[in-house]
Simulated assay, not measured.
Amino acid sequence: MPEQISTATDTGILQVPETIAIIMDGNGRWAKKRGLPRTAGHKKGADTIHTIGLEANRLGVKKLILYAFSTENWKRPEDEVGYLCKLPGLFFDRYIRDLMNNNIRVTFAGELERFPESTQKMIRKAVQQTEANTGLELCIAINYGSRRELLLAARQYA
């Protein structure tokens, strides 16, 4: 059973943060240590995010940011990149009903254009389906990178 968390400021009890960010890293290494393919680790990570998202929503967290796929991830082996590109679709196929039932709103940050059309559609559909929800905002950072962000900011400034 998770530790009880309160927002009461005068009790000295841990306060719930408004925003939590998670860098999705180490899932492939987790799988390899267990003799599994790296993709099994990525699937386990997605399933764990479902659990974390529901619990964060229950606790009153306002925003959960998942740094899920950086621009550097394109350098991975082709079969692993292919699986990672399909993972959002698998996640939303399996969990969109839970997200809706728990009033969780999906957003994304980054650029979808390099992803397969089916992945782009699935992410946009999840955003559209949940846009009226008022609970936790589940923000998926996808195809992001610090170098890319600096370049975009410099171009915008110029």
Results as ranks from 00 to 15, higher is better:
residue 23 I to F: 02
residue 110 G to Q: 12
residue 40 A to W: 09
residue 73 N to H: 02
residue 34 R to V: 09
residue 16 V to F: 04
residue 111 E to H: 14
residue 29 R to F: 12
residue 87 L to H: 05
residue 46 A to S: 11
residue 19 T to I: 14
residue 137 E to T: 13
residue 10 D to L: 07
residue 19 T to N: 11
residue 32 K to L: 11
residue 100 M to I: 15
residue 105 R to K: 11
residue 42 H to C: 10
residue 24 M to P: 08
residue 151 L to W: 04
residue 149 E to F: 08
residue 150 L to C: 05
residue 30 W to N: 07
residue 155 R to H: 03
residue 3 E to Q: 03
residue 80 E to T: 02
residue 132 A to E: 10
residue 86 K to T: 01
residue 11 T to Q: 11
residue 79 D to P: 00
residue 6 S to Y: 02
residue 125 K to W: 08
residue 132 A to Y: 07
residue 41 G to K: 06
residue 38 R to Y: 04
residue 18 E to M: 07
residue 52 I to L: 12
residue 52 I to K: 06
residue 73 N to L: 02
residue 64 L to R: 02
residue 156 Q to D: 15
residue 131 E to A: 05
residue 86 K to V: 00
residue 82 G to K: 01
residue 115 F to W: 06
residue 91 F to T: 02
residue 66 L to S: 03
residue 42 H to N: 14
residue 91 F to I: 05
residue 124 R to W: 02
residue 120 Q to K: 14
residue 95 Y to H: 12
residue 25 D to R: 06
residue 11 T to C: 07
residue 39 T to P: 08
residue 128 Q to F: 01
residue 95 Y to C: 06
residue 77 P to A: 01
residue 11 T to I: 03
residue 42 H to F: 13
residue 110 G to C: 15
residue 30 W to F: 10
residue 8 A to P: 00
residue 60 G to K: 06
residue 132 A to C: 06
residue 49 I to N: 03
residue 99 L to G: 06
residue 149 E to M: 07
residue 103 N to Q: 07
residue 106 V to N: 10
residue 67 Y to H: 00
residue 10 D to M: 02
residue 56 A to W: 01
residue 49 I to L: 14
residue 31 A to P: 03
residue 87 L to N: 06
residue 101 N to C: 15
residue 73 N to D: 02
residue 114 R to Q: 10
residue 100 M to L: 15
residue 51 T to L: 08
residue 12 G to Y: 13
residue 44 K to R: 12
residue 11 T to D: 12
residue 110 G to T: 13
residue 6 S to E: 10
residue 154 A to W: 13
residue 84 L to E: 08
residue 38 R to K: 04
residue 46 A to Y: 05
residue 7 T to K: 13
residue 57 N to A: 14
residue 111 E to A: 15
residue 118 S to K: 12
residue 104 I to W: 09
residue 53 G to N: 05
residue 94 R to K: 15
residue 112 L to K: 04
residue 69 F to A: 01
residue 48 T to R: 13
residue 84 L to N: 02
residue 6 S to N: 06
residue 116 P to I: 04
residue 56 A to Q: 07
residue 17 P to C: 07
residue 120 Q to G: 13
residue 32 K to C: 05
residue 20 I to M: 09
residue 45 G to T: 06
residue 12 G to W: 10
residue 23 I to C: 03
residue 44 K to S: 12
residue 137 E to Y: 02
residue 134 T to N: 12
residue 125 K to F: 08
residue 59 L to A: 05
residue 69 F to E: 00
residue 156 Q to G: 15
residue 59 L to D: 06
residue 44 K to M: 13
residue 157 Y to F: 10
residue 130 T to G: 11
residue 32 K to F: 11
residue 130 T to E: 12
residue 46 A to T: 04
residue 154 A to R: 15
residue 69 F to T: 00
residue 57 N to L: 13
residue 104 I to T: 11
residue 104 I to Q: 11
residue 105 R to D: 08
residue 70 S to V: 01
residue 30 W to Y: 14
residue 63 K to F: 05
residue 137 E to F: 03
residue 47 D to H: 09
residue 8 A to K: 00
residue 15 Q to I: 08
residue 150 L to I: 13
residue 124 R to I: 06
